[in-house]
């Protein structure tokens, strides 16, 4: 085996000629067919996500035996529910907005139909510089997540029987995760944000006043606003939280 220093020398000895530079450029820029395949890849991914959800539902609906599956449900539910204005497009797709309102910083639209998730516009590759895609930062303590974010995200007390298991910071959004203390698979996530977002749903939206606060139920997600922050509650496993529990969560913020 060659010594590291000799390897270094070998790597630097030969200056690259023009053809080597061309080869590097070709490897970096050769058309791999990615853009032609983008819609198909996306469609396959959506099918796989949906299939996974259906499998879970067939097994007893949303009861997650492993906590690790939680993000799939959350992401897929959000992907089905939310058609972000920046990405969803529809060729010849006529969508009627039946109802529109805001819950804090989240615009909620009830529409007659959602676009086919596979009909996503091909996009240009991101420009040379990398966008700021920071992975979530995970924290054991709320205070650490708040300090890292520089935002005092107010998190409610845990539902009785549950305990906080961690906090993930996704730029301007805090995800607080809770798990049942004795029954595995009973978990819930609370997304707390103070930035603009948009939700579309084709399902009915139920509005209920709980603890003097307007609370919205849509596609299994419970939404409310408090103190300039919007709360999205995703629950998996066990009985759905009733209004008394929602009231307790809201009251604990005061």
């Amino acid at each position: 085996m060659k010594h590291e220093a000799s390897l270094d020398r070998e790597a630097n000895l030969e200056p690259e000629d023009e053809k080597m530079a061309e080869l590097r450029a070709l490897l970096l820029n050769a058309d791999t067919g990615a853009e032609n395949s983008r819609a198909r890849v996306r469609e396959r991914l959506m099918r796989k996500l949906e299939k996974q959800i259906l499998n879970d539902e067939e097994k007893g609906a949303i009861i997650m035996r492993k906590r690790s599956k939680k993000p799939v449900i959350a992401a897929a539910a959000a992907l089905c529910l939310i058609a972000t204005a920046t990405t969803a497009y529809a060729t010849g797709f006529a969508q009627t907005v039946l109802e529109s309102f805001k819950v804090g910083n989240i615009a909620v639209e009830r529409v007659d139909q959602l676009p086919d998730s596979s009909q996503t516009a091909p996009r240009e590759e991101t420009a040379a510089g990398r966008p700021d895609v920071s992975a979530p930062r995970n924290f054991a303590a709320l205070a650490d997540a708040q300090a890292a974010a520089g935002v005092d995200f107010p998190a409610p007390s845990a539902v009785p029987g549950y305990a906080a298991t961690g906090y993930s910071l996704h730029n301007s959004l805090l995800e607080a995760q809770y798990a049942h203390e004795s029954e595995s698979g009973r978990i819930y996530s609370l997304l707390i944000s103070n930035s603009e977002n948009k939700i579309q749903t084709a399902d009915d939206i139920r509005a209920v006043t709980v603890a003097d606060t307007a609370v919205y139920f849509a596609n299994g997600i419970i939404l409310w606003e408090y103190g300039g922050f919007t709360y999205e509650l995703y629950q998996m496993g066990g009985e759905d939280f009733d209004v008394d529990i929602i009231a307790m969560l809201i009251e604990s913020l005061r």
Binding site: T32, G33, A34, S37, R38, V41, R42, P71, A74, A75, A78, L79, I82, T84, T86, T87, R123, E125, T126, R130, P131, V133, H170, N171, L173, L191, N197
Partner: peptide
Amino acid sequence: MQTDRFELLFDTYYGRIF
């Protein structure tokens, strides 16, 4: 994972992964 996070991640890395 939030939808906007997923969309950004997919768009950013799709070409490179492909």
